[in-house]
Simulated assay, not measured.
Amino acid sequence: MSDEQGYDALGARLKEFEGRPAAVAGTGKDPVNAPMIRHWCEAMGDTNPAYTGPEAIAPPAMLQAWTMAGLSGHQDRTGAYDELLGLLDASGCTAVVATDCEQEYLRPLRPGDEVAFDTVIEEVSGRKTTKLGTGYFVTTRTDVRVGGEPAGTHRFRILKYAPAPRPPAAPQRSAEPGKPGALRPRPVVNRDNAGFWEGVAAHRLLIQRCTGCGTLRHPWLPGCNACGGLDWDTVEASGEGTVHSYVVMHHPHFPAFTESGTGPDGSDGGAGADGPYAVGLIELAEGVRMVSNVVGVPYDKVRVGLPVRLVFRRYDAELTLPVFRAVDR
């Protein structure tokens, strides 16, 4: 049987799983509760007052959190989902990546609510070829209830695939002509943060500002985490800041990260080719924080509260990054 026929036969078997339950009469491991809401809001930077106080509701996007199984798993699984994944594993589709989710909110969840849910295997796609490899998209739908009343629906989609063969690795280029070492990894630039990197290229550190409520935010996001507004402009950071927290990287040694770049004054980055080097969470004078290297001071002299100032450091012909140089008191 050819690979093509094998995939056709597998696809037909996988389609038989559509509509089968993956979990029946599942229950959340914990009631909706204020501590989990607080942790979520702190992690997301969401300060909406609706999520605090005696009349608090849970952030709607937490819908899935109340149904998650944790490390010990759920006892309400039917086995159909595991059987489906087993067939894919046996066919060589051993890798998995979550691709997207969709949520519908029908009523707010409040502390004390006991969550119940059912999960069904809603759809298995035909064979798809992606840059990652060839495989199948599997969509599950979870219907969430409280006291028998529908509360929301969560659809979750994964790609289960056979990894595509990797091309031979290209020889690494030197960071500087005639010098050994690997290029520093490139930042991921997308439609949400392109403006930030355009600013960096022009030696400007731009911070997003919500035009609705005036809240500053970093890293760049498509919407305001304070009021939810989608309209924004930018302000240019003064470059003044302090070290809010930091770590010192000792091992392993990655030459691309430990080799010094050069600043406008030709000075180095304060770390040798073997490190260690300090990575700081910098609180800017404007009130937002960002992660970057702390340079111009030995790594063991970095301290919380250390005043720093922005410099733009050139690491190679194509890459300039904002870093923070220690300022003498």
Rank of each mutant, 00 (worst) to 15 (best):
T47K: 07
D46M: 08
S72D: 14
G26P: 05
G86E: 09
N33I: 02
R77Y: 14
A90V: 00
L14T: 00
P21N: 10
L84W: 02
G26H: 04
G28F: 12
A56E: 06
A80R: 04
T67W: 04
T67K: 04
E16L: 11
T47N: 07
P35N: 07
S72I: 11
T67L: 02
T27F: 04
M44E: 14
T47L: 11
G70C: 08
V32Y: 12
E16C: 01
A61F: 11
E42S: 10
P59L: 07
T94D: 14
Y51M: 10
A80N: 15
A61R: 09
M62I: 06
M68K: 04
E16P: 00
T67H: 02
D82P: 01
S91R: 10
D46G: 02
T78P: 00
W66P: 06
G53L: 08
A65E: 08
Q75E: 12
D82Y: 02
D76M: 01
G86S: 09
A50F: 09
P35I: 10
D76F: 06
G70Q: 05
A80F: 06
A25V: 04
G26Q: 06
G79D: 05
P49Y: 08
P21D: 11
L88H: 01
P59Q: 09
I37A: 10
G79H: 03
A61Y: 07
P35Y: 12
S91Y: 01
I57R: 03
E42T: 12
H39K: 04
Y81R: 02
Y51R: 08
L63I: 13
L63Y: 11
E55V: 06
R20H: 01
P21G: 10
A95N: 15
L71I: 13
D82V: 06
G86W: 04
G73Q: 03
A65V: 15
P54F: 08
M68G: 07
N48D: 15
H39R: 12
A98H: 14
C93Y: 01
P21E: 08
T78R: 00
A43R: 03
D76C: 15
A50D: 12
Q75P: 02
G70N: 07
